[in-house]
Amino acid sequence: MAEFTEIWSYLAGNPLIWLSATLIAYVIGDWAAAKMQRASWVNPVLIAVTLLGALLWATDTSYDIYFEGAQFVHFLLGPATVALAIPLWHQRHAVRRALLPVLAALLAGSVTAVLSALAIGHALGLSPQLLATLAPKSTTAPVALGISQSLGGSPTLTAVLVIVTGIIGALVVTPLMNLLRIRDWRARGFATGVAAHGIGTARALQVHPQAGAFAGIGMALNALLTALLAPWALGLFL
């Protein structure tokens, strides 16, 4: 019989193990979320990320090795974004009726996301480079990296802030909206897509189909608007 260390050294360099680990960690996170009736504070992404982070640390595995397996999951983000056309199509009549609220909420949510982050960061003494890194944090990752780079920020750190923002949004949206007594699924979903991009949209899709559709639109429109707004907003704080 082969030694365990031999098997491990074979598996550790194989994409299969980290692809499996990613799915297993997510299944555990999703199971826990389902067990807690999808309470917002039990976020499957956060649970899976914590488990995997601990596992990589315990096995002394680098992110590059991990990503060789995980890339197959990561790749599906693109096709999944394309597939957001489906909830949008189901809700096309509701969206057409809500055109004015959508445009108003887009402008208000997007401006608030950028300006409030910059104002708070500025008040707490962040450097201009960190402000540029922070400005696009509510935008979907590929656009956020481009904006950060063009403003003189750090794209790597922006990627981190985008993911953290998405998780914060997914965690707080349900209790916040209940507290504000906002029951309109269109409003809840749309604001989530604008403030917390794809991770917020994933949460919205799990809660209500109409919220999910409006979140997808919010994410797409906010990517466009933030690209236009961010340079102007940053200029106010430099």
Binding site: T112, A113, G121
Partner: peptide
């Protein structure tokens, strides 16, 4: 900045949506 700004953006976005609707 991330936590406060996300809460503000969610509240303002949803609030404006409901008001305009």
């Amino acid at each position: 900045a991330l936590v406060l700004s996300t809460i503000l953006a969610l509240a303002v976005g949803a609030g404006v949506f409901v008001a305009v609707a």
